[in-house]
Design a protein around this nucleic acid. Sequence first.
RNA 1: GCCCGGGUGGCGAAAUCGGCAGACGCAAAGGACUUAAAAUCCUUUUUUCCUAACGGAGAGUGUGGGUUCAAGUCCCACCCCGGGCACCA
Length: 860
Amino acid sequence: MSEQLSEKRKQYPFSEIEPKWQAFWDEHKTFRVANPGDAGFDASRPKFYVLDMFPYPSGDGLHVGHPEGYTATDIVSRYRRKTGWNVLHPMGWDAFGLPAEQYAIKTGQHPRVTTGRNVNRFRGQLKRLGFCYDWDREINTTDPGYFRWTQWIFLQIYNSWFDVATQRARPVSELEAQGLSRDEIDARRLAYVAEVQVNWCPGLGTVLANEEVVDGKSEVGGFPVERRPLRQWMLRITAYAERLIDGLEGLDWPEGIKRHQAEWIGRSEGAEVVFRVEGSGRELRVFTTRPDTLYGATYMVLAPEHSLVDEITTEARRAVVETYRKEAAAKSDMDRTALAKTKTGVDSGGFAINPVNGERIPIWIADYVLISYGTGAIMAVPAHDERDHEFALQFGLPIRQVVQPPPGNEEKCFCGDGIAINSPLFEGLPTQEAKRKITAWLEEQKLGRKTINYKLRDWLFARQRYWGEPFPILWQDGRHQAVADADLPVIPPDLEDFKPTGTPEPPLSKATDWIRVSDTVTRETNTMPQWAGSCWYYLRFIDAGNSSRFAGAEAEKYWMGHNGKPGGVDLYVGGTEHAVLHLLYARFWHKVLYDLGHVTTPEPFQRLVNQGLILGEDGQKMSKSRGNVINPDHVIEEYGADSLRLFEMFMGPLEQVKPWSTKGVEGVYRFLGRVWRLFFEARDDSAWEFSPKVQDVDASPKLLKVLHETIRKVGGDIESLSFNTAISQMMICTNELTSSDVRPVCVLAGLLQALNPFAPHLSEELYHALTARYPSLPKGPLSELPWPQWEARHLAEDTMEIVIQVNGRMRDKLTVAVDIDTDSLKAAAMASEKVTEHTAGKEVRNVIVVPKRLVNLVVR
RNA sequence: GCCCGGGUGGCGAAAUCGGCAGACGCAAAGGACUUAAAAUCCUUUUUUCCUAACGGAGAGUGUGGGUUCAAGUCCCACCCCGGGCACCA
């Protein structure tokens, strides 16, 4: 009874329509796309690769942020398919990772079980939204058939070295052929083992990449992170620093993201300068971007971890320095950053000699100098560097000005470009020239050279986790070696207990049988970080089932190959949170594969678009604690998937941050109801009856105009991703038809075409109903019909409205013939009564005529 | 501190090249239908002032300047909100 009532309330029977068409598309594989060489492949169509950032299938299910980007790409895919492209639009699961493992530890269920369940839930939810993915290409990073190739790519990296001269990766077999020793080769590999200071997180029982540590705590879970030295697998991403910056130029990415990546890589040009340490044969190397301030160096600073600290420290200072080093080591990153109010440091007692003037300057130890950047030592120029300035003031060190700021600049610590002073070797030169001159002089004297430094560090690639890809690496006599191709994939052991060991020993170390390959050979027990699987997933979609290659060469060439553009994926949509990490790592892997000849383009993603965050109804970030989370399942239940899709697109521009609005969902829901009622009228007994207003007649010029305007605008708006205005136009068209006594079949069919990419279920159903009555219409499914052509002749009008202004104020509007000439228009404007009222007794000094728009009379 | 993004009605927003500010939707008010309500359909809706009314005049896109016949749009300075980075020499 109550159910009937609520059924009656429904604007239209979406809960019957939607599952029906989803089943139809599934069954008929409507959205399957063929690869070159496959049956049904149409070589005459150009390709278009539309990619979503694939989700991590969490236990919470989909949130409303997911359908935002996914609907946008769905609309683009459907539209492109209708306008004659072969569209690759796939979906998969980034399913390795910490949450599943931690959930498993808590509940005792194997991550494989929970992951499988979450994947099924996510897939079901996505299907309920009617997305046009080619589900035959579905991938899961935790499938052995998938991570076999993740491991294979790792080995490609492992078996490569970076040739600086040609700036590209080459196989290490070349080095073997040149007769290099094993140690020499291992030192050059793009994947190498090194003892490095790592971010060890006891709470998670793993090390983390710098990028995964936020404010001294783990990004996941918020546990404290400490520094400690460990032997770890590293990837030599720094070798690609230059190319990762240069490659950004050719990409259609938001400028902000490009800048962000470039800043992250942090290229910095300067010079390395050699200072002699007094009383020993030792040299101190420093990196500076301002070699022109060399005469202003009044002291030096070493990072506490610098290898020469012990040697430089005098006996008198040893105890103090040792204490300071211990304190610095114990400090969290947080305490060592700029947020710490005051700088700390101690005098080592040692002195260095300034190479330009032979001056003796003290050497200090301070943790504002980072061991991991440059040489871990600096020359301090307190007159022209904020940090050195602050430190010098605090410890009473001398400050000597060597750059004359431009006139009018009164800054105590001037860091910009000026004129060199107190600098005999290049006195009076502007900063840029001074830099060149001193650098050349240093090179001549063999006291330094031009250098480029990067903020980017090599990528710490190992994790002490269970739920990740095992390394395809074996150990023998303390040396690593690759697992043979034929033995891939290396499948993780079926552990019962995958709890962290509490030490840096990975959980896999508990699988003693698995580790032991033979008496002398054991397996690597670290696993790869979660980024690994997402570094190349876009390539696997191209040929998801291929068991002999990560993707067939021909298919890769077709889908990634491009009209001269560097990137392969034509449109990539996802959140800003991946601005640096995922996008940088994926570009790095792609470039290695490119260098080795495995892929055809130098960049993975040509065009990148970030969808904006959806806030709660209260304008705050959605969170469980605030209780403002919107569950997409509930929205679908109440208003249908088409309404959810349409609303998320109607809220505002895709890239903008915008708040949720339940009333807004109801608004688009009502709009879809209005579209339904163009075709069906409610009978007294609440059944739907086909409207007698729908007739197979010629359309009026007015209706034709609004229809063709709609087709034109919706098409253009989809191409520019302006979905909100496309929907407005369809509303205008619908309003026009609602108030029309006769609704010509051809106009209705056109509207359904325009609506199809946005509300595929409703449009498909209505088109189906329409063709049942009017069999002369092209046979559906609508999703497979080509996009209609708009015709200019229907948009043309005989007359137009021209605004008449006097001194920039609108005074009248005139309806004139479209082909009116300027003089007649001018005359008509001057003749207008409303205009003459305002020009009476005044001199018309100028008349500006903007064709098709306005006339402005300038009077005085 | 630095770097982005953004400030337009009661709200979400729209406005190719500088050319009618507020399309479209929400909310609100009034009307039609109904015994009544819901749903639906129609009308009004930036604001101030003048007019009995038709209608008209002014103001208005964060603030203050500027350029221009004409500025939401371009230039300069500033204020506020959101996000990111954080001693990288």
